[in-house]
Write a protein that binds this DNA or RNA. Sequence first.
DNA 1: CTGAAAGCGCTAACAT
DNA 2: ATGTTAGCGCTTTCAG
Lengths: 330, 330
Amino acid sequence: MVNIRDVARYCGVSAMTVSRALNNSNQISQATKEKILKACEELGYRPNFAARSLVTKKTNMVGLIIPDITNQYYSHVSKGVSSYLSLQGYGLLLCNSDRRKDDEIRYLNFLAEGRVDGIIILPVQPRKEDYEGIAKEIPLVMADNYAEGLDVSFVGNDNYHGASEIISHMIKQGFKRIGVILGHSSSSASNERFKAYKDVLKKNNIELDNEIVLNSNATFEDGFNLTKVLIEKGVDSIFAINDTVALGVVKYCYLNNIRIPEDIGVAGYDNIEQSSMLPVPLTTVDQNGNQLGKVAAETLLNLLADESTVPKKIILKPKLVIRKSLGENI
Amino acid sequence: MVNIRDVARYCGVSAMTVSRALNNSNQISQATKEKILKACEELGYRPNFAARSLVTKKTNMVGLIIPDITNQYYSHVSKGVSSYLSLQGYGLLLCNSDRRKDDEIRYLNFLAEGRVDGIIILPVQPRKEDYEGIAKEIPLVMADNYAEGLDVSFVGNDNYHGASEIISHMIKQGFKRIGVILGHSSSSASNERFKAYKDVLKKNNIELDNEIVLNSNATFEDGFNLTKVLIEKGVDSIFAINDTVALGVVKYCYLNNIRIPEDIGVAGYDNIEQSSMLPVPLTTVDQNGNQLGKVAAETLLNLLADESTVPKKIILKPKLVIRKSLGENI
DNA sequence: CTGAAAGCGCTAACAT
DNA sequence: ATGTTAGCGCTTTCAG
């Protein structure tokens, strides 16, 4: 392995001069700089990452902890993060928590060993205690799902707004007994959407029936399985916590010859690519995952540039996408 | 920041003893080990990654270069890699090349700075020259898409087999003028599938018409746009290089009231989750992305454990998934 | 079982 | 504009 001293010797200069050439210092003449850069090429020299970051205390890496990379929404968030980081010369250390708390914590500690300059986390079932320790050690930005009472920057979506819009639309379309498949009870996204559901129902004088409000792990399988339960309880429509769950609902209906929207209305959330291509295209709420990822990365990099920045909350507005799964638009 | 010497001082031992305690050495008494581990907890000590890897020349990191993380197949490959690595105590440095050659090369050099112990790459338009240099510097496993003539391990899918199966099925279903939307002309996957297409046509005495064989960037948009072209050329069916492209085909048909499979047959490749939930479920070929990712990661880690291992090619067999987009099964 | 010395490859700070 | 010195935090090697 060729190191900086080999290059220095080869060029008849000191290691320091080579270092300056490589770091675009202006304390070096153009001539020597060019000579050195050429020598680096010839010798196949590459600066050693570990040595460099040991002294600079910088890694130019960001850690991203995400619940499930195969979920389309999260994959877009990841891409948004990745693209922005790449543009700024940063690398991405991806941690797929697989929606498991213990893996999430394991990754948090793994990252905190100085592997990255900062962390973006989309937490599962967030609890304040899990992050306040880490957040003191390393710059942290929370995204998508919020841990109440934690003093860190957060980038999220306006879940209350998005859910209000779609539930209002459902009622306008004539649905009265709206079943809900929520996520986990500790998910802030799920809770905020549920709150909107309750508020909109009340505003429309529809009584809340907790029998038709179900929690789930927000998977396709749960969507499929819980649809049976809800239909047995006589719902006329289902609001799913995301499109993947809605796809499960649709599949159940499809296999059981239940027509959408004639027999049952279906609403999703996320506007994943395929939701527009179902037998009956899905009415849903569009959250721009790519944008969320980009803004989260931007927020973290700003924090890295100036650690005294005060934590801020950025809430992105999602938008209602009306298709046919709740009937024709009036 | 608390370092190993702080812990040593606190415990009244040498730094070396602390190091031994942390690395599960057996050259240390149980008592001191426990005392030290407890002290680490109390002081909030974390071993420094850069310092450690500077001396051990190990990062316990693997780099993954992938064309597009938002593509469902690639996201499953990523998850397969991630899960296996995590199990083995490795971290994942994810590089989304965005199907751009220049970004891919940039990432390759970025990773080769000693950021990772090895690299898994799913190359775009692979050319031997791009990888042979890097492969000498750092263990490399190629996956999904192969660069001919390169002496590195490869994990891929049997594209010839998969495409043969589905084209044969198309012909059996009565289609005679089968349009094709390929990927890029330098993609080995695309080339192998095209070869199967030609061979199966010949075997069935159907003349090849290059007019209805189109290259593309393998995107949803390309699928949508090229369908118009193919239909104008009078195809009775379309074989798309992947399900995402097929979804584009389906969308075009859907918007133009072209019935599947009555007016046109559609075949995909990849078996993405949503392909079973289209208006007419898609007949496709299932490649287990998760498995491919796992095997690629396994291959790389074996190589890291013993660098003298000879490169090997592992080819996974995909399987035909018959649904309704090519008509009812006979 | 424990410790002392040396050094991994680089850059910050201070010379010149 | 260039060089010297020192040291980042850890582990390897060798000694005891």
